[in-house]
C-alpha cells in the first residue's frame, strides 16, 4: 500500500536558490527508502519537507505535491503539529533535550495530552525497547540524557520519536557521527521497526543504504537521478551517474 507520494515536487529557499526540482517518488507502507547523494543534493531538504519542518523558514517556495495516505500535507486540512507526530524525525546530530532520559522520551506524549504516570511509563519503556536502548538505561532513567554516549543519544532520539506512535520515521544521516558498533545497533533497530512503520533514511554511506533499504533513490544537485529497488540500483544502475557514485568514482 502506498504511504507517501511525492509528485512533481520542487522547492526553493529564500532568494530563489533551488534545492529540489521535479521530484517524483513513492514509498510503500512497511518499506525502507534509502536516499543517497552528495552534500547539497537536496536529500535533507526533501526530508524536511515531508514533515513540514521547512515551515519555519522565511521566503521559501514550492511546486507540486506531497501526499500522506492520499491527503496533501500542505493543504489546510492537515495540522503541521499533528503531521509531525505522525511523521517523526531523527536528526543527523543527536539532540537530546537537557533533561533526564525518562523526560526525553515522555516529552512528546505529554505534549499530545497523555497524562498519568503508568501510561507514560509504558510509552517510555516501549520507545526505549523498540530503539534497543532499554537494557542499557533501564536502571538510570532519571539521569541526564546528556551523559549518554553519542550512539545511545541517537537511539534515545529514535525512542522519543517512537513513543509518539508515528506512522512514518524520517532519519537524516542518523549514523554520520557514530562508530561502527553504534551504527550496527541503529541498523538492527531499523530492520525491526520496519514491520510497524514506514521509514525514510537519508545517508551519505552507500553501503548503509545497500544494507538497510528496500528501495533506494540517488539525488544530485536537487534532481532525482535514479529511483528503484535497492538490489537493482546496486547491481544494474540505469544511469551512469548513479553507477559512478555507488562505485566510488564520483567527482
Amino acid at each position: 500500500m502506498e504511504k507517501i507520494r511525492v509528485k512533481g515536487f520542487g522547492f526553493a529557499y529564500q532568494g530563489g536558490s533551488v534545492a529540489l526540482e521535479n521530484i517524483n517518488l513513492s514509498v510503500m507502507r512497511n518499506e525502507i527508502l534509502g536516499i543517497m547523494g552528495p552534500a547539497q543534493s537536496g536529500k535533507s531538504t526533501l526530508l524536511r519537507c515531508l514533515n513540514r519542518m521547512v515551515d519555519a523558514l522565511p521566503g521559501t517556495s514550492r511546486k507540486g505535491s506531497i501526499t500522506l495516505d492520499g491527503a496533501d500535507i500542505f493543504s489546510g486540512e492537515i495540522d503541521p503539529d499533528d503531521l509531525r507526530r505522525r511523521v517523526g524525525m531523527v536528526f543527523d546530530v543527536p539532540v537530546p533535550l537537557p533533561r533526564s532520559i525518562y523526560e526525553n522520551v515522555a516529552y512528546g506524549p505529554k505534549l499530545h495530552g497523555v497524562r498519568g504516570r503508568k501510561k507514560l511509563d509504558e510509552l517510555v519503556e516501549f520507545g526505549l525497547r523498540s530503539a534497543i536502548l532499554w537494557d542499557e538505561v533501564k536502571d538510570r532513567l532519571g539521569t541526564s540524557a546528556l551523559r549518554l554516549s553519542g550512539g545511545q543519544q541517537q537511539r534515545l532520539c529514535i525512542a522519543r520519536t517512537l513513543a509518539l506512535d508515528p506512522e512514518v520515521i524520517l532519519l537524516d544521516e542518523p549514523c554520520s557521527g557514530l562508530d561502527p558498533i553504534s551504527t550496527l545497533k541503529i541498523e538492527e533497530a531499523l530492520s525491526e521497526l520496519k514491520s510497524k512503520y514506514t521509514i525514510i533514511i537519508v545517508t551519505n554511506n552507500t553501503k548503509q543504504a545497500a544494507r538497510v533499504s528496500d528501495k533506494a533513490a540517488y539525488f544530485l544537485m536537487g534532481e532525482l537521478v535514479e529511483y528503484g529497488r535497492t538490489k537493482q540500483i546496486f547491481t544494474v544502475p540505469r544511469d551512469r551517474r548513479t553507477d559512478d557514485y555507488i562505485s566510488g568514482r564520483f567527482g
Partner: peptide
C-alpha cells in the same frame, strides 16, 4: 537544535 528537536516531536 533543541527547538528543532521539540518541533519535530509535534510541539
Amino acid at each position: 537544535s533543541y527547538r528543532e528537536g521539540s518541533i519535530a516531536l509535534g510541539a
